[in-house]
Design a protein around this nucleic acid. Structure first.
Length: 549
RNA sequence: GGCCCGGUGGUCAAGCGGUUAAGACUCCGCCCUUUCACGGCGGCAACACGGGUUCGAGUCCCGUCCGGGUCACCA
């Protein structure tokens, strides 16, 4: 090798970088079954888990799980400016809530698992340097001494000249600096970045196969992109090539905002002598805003943040099922055919991802979530409700905890069987929907229905907590006719003018007196859970309120 | 602005040269029903536009428009 180049290489990297060959041996191809997917989630620890990240993570997770492969988490902490203290913890917490945990890589704050680490980019500097050195010594990289101001100025001039902006070709000042000068300036301690010396041709096109979009025709990369920043830390692009190769990733699933830099990535893989992974560029999750759509914003949209779903008390299963309807639209059909099957059994396919951006549909999520909750057993529902309340509504948790059998009975009403009720979509609806089961949460409302007093008085006389459902209902009917209400709905409908109402109206008054709600599960069952004492007290109180009016 | 990616009912979407253009959510109506739900049945509602190619186009090609992305020592 050229003596000057060697001197430059020494000046930049010293003597301690490992040989790329050694690294290849240290991180050998994975011993996995044929066709296994190795996927990864590679977020930066900004203290925020975006629903879009989770969307991608779930695709990674499913693709790996389906194929008997590996899904790992790598932290892209190469930008100190964006990093946040508990960033990694927040990410892991979101994944834990959603039940989409990686099986390798960063598995807990300060904890890494797996043989392809370190999985935190700030700990991999020496690895990046080994490959950067390889490029430099091959004449495919060079130090660039341009300051941020100089680059701004360059852009301004290009803007004016009406030419493509960027550091490339003749605009790349430092590209062809004499080696001697490069070495001298580095040795003198002048700040520099390491840039790719792109061999790309201005008008050339490359075609890349994308798993969700098919053939992509893109301009070849001509930019002398920064590989190593002034502090020696790699940029995303360079780290992507090195890491995903060494960690033996087979499929890179990421948002389509990366398509624009795909030519650079492909070029980097080629120059480094790596085989590029398969790519799947997914559409971004969007939000509707006065007619238009835009991507979910972490500042403006609470639902962009995964922790919001946890706070609202959406069961993770519901979030996963909803995400899956977006991921693979045949999921709903599959779910109907396999109502009880585990999500892991769903034949997920990357190819079925939609290339266009979906609006996040909270209404649909509610529907999915109601179904998910309605399918739980009373025990499951109670347990999950308690976990949620313990974190987000301690007062409610205490009440439920104080009388667990009641909590279970309350959540067990009209549950099970063919047609379970779908009362709630999130645990934060518990208070509003079931609050009347607790004196502490119960706020009686006056009964507006005409005849309330008469109905309540009549009901007080026949109420017997020992009644079974049939008897209860028969007894209820018995008070209807004397009060001018039809005990039979059909009879009422046949001759509405002959009655004041029907048995439904009568039970409505009682329901209201006992729960202050127009809709509850089966009234007989509700009263059983409430207990005789409470029922009598509430009937009495309601009657008193009527009398006052 | 350059380059790139998208564009089927309000939403998510099947469809991949010949279909009465599926299905799900929402909404509306009916049935069931002691309430509310659930469930069942039915309804409203779509191929962005203009040119080609073709016997035939949502489906292929070109252009337009609209939406989005990207042009950093951020990922």
């Amino acid at each position: 090798m050229n003596e000057l180049r060697l001197r430059l290489s020494q000046a930049i990297f010293g003597n301690s970088t490992p040989d790329p060959e050694e690294l290849e041996l240290r991180y050998p191809p994975r011993a996995l079954p044929e066709g296994a997917f190795v996927t990864r989630l590679a977020p930066s620890p900004t203290g925020f888990l975006h629903i879009g990240n989770l969307f991608g993570a779930f695709a990674d997770f499913l693709a790996a799980a389906r194929s008997g492969g590996v899904f790992f988490l790598r932290l892209e902490d190469t930008d100190k400016k964006r990093e946040v203290a508990q960033g990694a913890a927040v990410l892991l917490e979101g994944l834990r809530y959603a039940g989409i945990l990686p099986d390798e890589g960063v598995t807990a704050p300060e904890e890494e698992r797996g043989a392809y680490g370190p999985y935190t980019q700030s700990k991999r500097k020496w690895i990046y340097h080994a490959f950067a050195r390889q490029l430099l010594e091959a004449g495919l990289a060079y130090p660039c001494f341009c300051s941020a101001e100089a680059l701004d100025e360059l852009r301004a001039r290009q803007e004016q000249a009406g030419v493509n902006k960027g550091y490339y070709g003749k605009w790349a000042r430092c590209r062809d600096l004499p080696l001697a000068e490069q070495a001298r300036r580095v040795e003198a301690g002048e700040p520099y970045t390491l840039r790719l010396r792109s061999p790309g041709r201005e008008t050339a096109k490359i075609t890349v196969r994308d798993l969700v979009r098919g053939k992509l025709e893109l301009p070849e990369n001509i930019m002398d992109a920064v590989l190593l920043k002034a502090d020696g830390v790699p940029t995303y692009h360079f780290a992507h090539a090195v890491d995903d190769h060494l960690m033996r990733v087979t499929h890179v699933i990421r948002g389509d905002e990366w398509i624009a830099s795909l030519p650079l990535h492909i070029q980097l893989f080629e120059l480094l002598g790596f085989r590029p992974p398969h790519y799947a560029h997914t559409a971004l999750i969007m939000k509707e805003e006065n007619g238009g759509r835009r991507k979910l914003s972490k500042r403006k949209d609470p639902e962009a943040r995964v922790s919001w779903f946890a706070e609202q008390g959406y069961p993770a299963q519901a979030l996963r099922e909803y995400l899956l309807t977006l991921l693979n639209s045949n999921f709903e059909d599959w779910r109907r055919a396999n109502p009880a099957a585990d999500l892991a059994e769903f034949p997920f396919e990357l190819k079925k991802l939609s290339p266009s951006g979906a609006l996040f549909d909270l209404v649909k999520l509610e529907d999915v979530s109601k179904t998910v909750i309605s399918r739980m057993t009373a025990e499951e529902a109670c347990e999950q409700a308690l976990v949620w309340a313990g974190e987000y509504d301690p007062a409610l948790a205490a009440l439920m905890e104080a009388d667990k059998p009641r909590a279970r009975a309350m959540l067990g009403l009209d549950r099970g069987g063919r047609k379970p009720r779908k009362d709630i979509a999130r645990w934060n609806q518990l208070r509003e929907t079931f609050g009347y089961f607790y004196e502490e949460l119960y706020a009686p409302l006056p009964c507006e229905q005409p005849d309330s007093a008469a109905i309540l008085r009549a009901y007080q006389r026949i109420y017997d907590p020992a009644d079974d459902k049939e008897t209860w209902f028969a007894r209820l009917k018995s008070i209807c006719e004397p009060l001018g209400y039809s005990p039979d709905v059909k009879a009422f409908k046949a001759a509405p003018e002959a009655w004041k109402g029907h048995v439904g109206d009568v039970s409505g008054v009682i329901r209201w007196a006992v729960t202050s709600r127009a809709n509850t599960p089966d009234l007989w069952a509700v009263m059983r859970v409430l207990g005789e004492e409470t029922v009598r007290a509430r009937l009495e109180a309601a009657l008193a309120a009527c009398a006052v009016r």
